[in-house]
């Protein structure tokens, strides 16, 4: 066994990130937007792990820990916002919350 080329790991992270990004852009339902966000964060964590293991260093996993912390904090705040949104507009459509229209 020769092991896995680092590029393959990073490519997987890139694909997942691109998928998350696409979802973020075209979904209107806020639940799906948040899930896409989680996918992107996860892809970023994957990139850290790939790099860390490729160099044989534990820092990658330490950084992943940080990413996961961030994801947890983000999810809690975002879900609270989502509940507020639903409460105010009776919908999860992000286009309805267009108070920033110029």
């Amino acid at each position: 066994m020769n092991g896995i080329p680092m590029e393959h790991g990073l490519a997987l992270a890139a694909v997942l990130f691109a998928l998350g990004l696409a979802g973020l852009m075209f979904r209107r339902n806020m639940v799906f937007v948040l899930m896409s966000l989680e996918v992107m964060l996860n892809a970023a964590g994957l990139a850290f792990i790939v790099a860390g293991t490729a160099w044989g260093q534990p820092e990658g996993q330490a950084m992943f820990l940080l990413v996961i912390t961030l994801a947890a904090a983000e999810a809690s705040v975002a879900l609270a916002l989502l509940i507020q949104l639903y409460h105010r507009f009776k919908t999860l459509d992000t286009d309805k919350a267009s108070g920033m229209r110029g």
């Binding site: 092991g3 896995i4 080329p5 680092m6 490519a11 790939v50 490729a54 260093q57 990658g60």
Partner: peptide, 16 residues
């Protein structure tokens, strides 16, 4: 960009 980089590094799968 990835493919153009200095490739060739392999991940052996040793435990960290």
């Amino acid at each position: 960009t990835l493919s153009a980089g200095d490739g060739g590094r392999m991940i052996s799968g040793d435990m960290l």
